[in-house]
Simulated assay, not measured.
Amino acid sequence: MEQKFGDNPVEVRDTEHYKDEYNEGFVDKWDELINWDSRAESEGNFFIDALRQRGAKKILDVSTGTGFNAVRLVEAGFQVTCVDGSAEMLAKAFDNGWDRGHILRVVQADWRWLNRDIHGKYDAVICLGNSLTHLFKERDRRKALAEFYAALRHDGVLILDQRNYDAILDEGFSSKHKHYYCGDTVSAEPEYVDDGLARFRYEFSDNSVYHLNMFPLRKDYTRNLMHEVGFQKITTYGDFDPNYDPSNVDFYLHIAEKYYDENEEPED
C-alpha cells in the first residue's frame, strides 16, 4: 500500500500527516522492524524497574503502536491503558495482545486533547518509540506535554524517548541498530535531514519501502520543554545508560518527575 507525500515529500511537515503515513501496509510490517524478542532482550526490565521503583501501578501508554511495551507491562502486573492516534496501530496492538492472551484497553486520541478522551489520573505516562517527533509545531509539543502532565497524579512520572537527533544533525547518521528497532531484516535510515525535518526510509525484507517525516528534536530542547510545562526533575539516559557518550547513542530516554520537593534545589 503506497503512502502519499505529494510531489515534494520533504515539504510535508504537518502534524496530522502521520495518520496517512501509518497506513495498513506499513503497520502490518511494523513488528518486523521492532522484532519483539530482540527488543525485549535489548531493553531488559528498564521500564518495568523504573516504574516499580516509583510505585507506579496505573500506566497510560500514549504511543502504543503495535503494543510491545503495553503487553510487556501488562505481563509484569501493571494496569495499562493504550492510546494512539492511529486506528491501524491500535487495531494491530489489540490483535497482538489477544494473541498473547490479553485484552488491551485501547483508546484513539489526539495528544493535544488527550484528557478529553481518557479519564482519571495515572501514576505514569509513557511516550516511547520516538513518537513526540510527529509533532511539527512547538505549540503542539507544548500542548501535548501539558496534557501528559495533567493526566498524572501529583507524584506521577513521564517516561519519554527520542532519537539522538543531535548526532544526526551535527555529525551525520550512524546506528548500532541494537535498541528499539531490532529487526535485522529491515533497513531504517534518514533519507533527508535539516533543522525542521528528518525523513526516514524503511526498507523491508520483501523490498517494500515506506517513509516517515518527523521533526528532529534536540535533547536539551526536549528537556527544557518538559521543565517549562511543570516537570521538576528530569533524568536522561543514552541507550538505557546514565553514563553515556552523546555522540555514540541511538536514543535518549527522559524520566521526568512531576513531584515537587520544596527542599530540593531546582535543576539548571
Rank of each mutant, 00 (worst) to 15 (best):
Q3D: 08
Q3W: 05
G6W: 07
G6H: 06
N8E: 14
R13V: 11
Y18L: 11
Y22M: 00
G25L: 00
G25Y: 02
V27P: 00
W30R: 04
R39L: 06
E41W: 09
G44D: 04
F46A: 03
F47Y: 15
F47Q: 02
I48V: 15
D49C: 04
D49Y: 06
L51P: 00
L51T: 03
L51A: 04
G55E: 08
K58S: 09
K58C: 05
L60Y: 05
V62K: 00
S63M: 08
T64Y: 02
G65D: 01
T66I: 09
G67L: 00
V71K: 04
R72H: 07
V74A: 13
V74N: 09
E75L: 15
F78Y: 07
Q79T: 10
V80G: 00
L90E: 01
L90I: 03
A91H: 13
F94W: 11
G97A: 04
D110H: 02
D110P: 04
W113H: 14
L114E: 05
I118V: 15
G120L: 08
D123G: 04
D123H: 08
D123M: 03
A124M: 02
I126W: 00
G129V: 03
N130T: 09
N130A: 07
S131C: 12
H134W: 01
R139Q: 13
D140A: 02
K143V: 03
A146E: 14
A150R: 15
R153K: 15
D155Q: 09
D155R: 09
D155Y: 01
I159K: 01
Q162Y: 09
Q162N: 12
N164L: 06
N164K: 08
E171T: 10
F173I: 07
F173T: 03
K176A: 15
H177Q: 14
H177P: 00
Y180L: 13
G183Q: 05
A188P: 10
Y192W: 05
R201S: 11
H211C: 09
N213E: 05
R218W: 12
R218N: 08
T222I: 03
R223V: 15
N224C: 10
L225E: 04
H227L: 14
F231S: 01
Q232Y: 10
K233C: 07
T236Y: 05
D239I: 11
P242M: 10
N243M: 07
D245R: 12
P246Q: 02
P246N: 03
N248I: 08
V249N: 08
D250I: 11
F251P: 08
E257M: 09
D261P: 01
E264V: 13
E265F: 12
P266Y: 06
D268G: 10
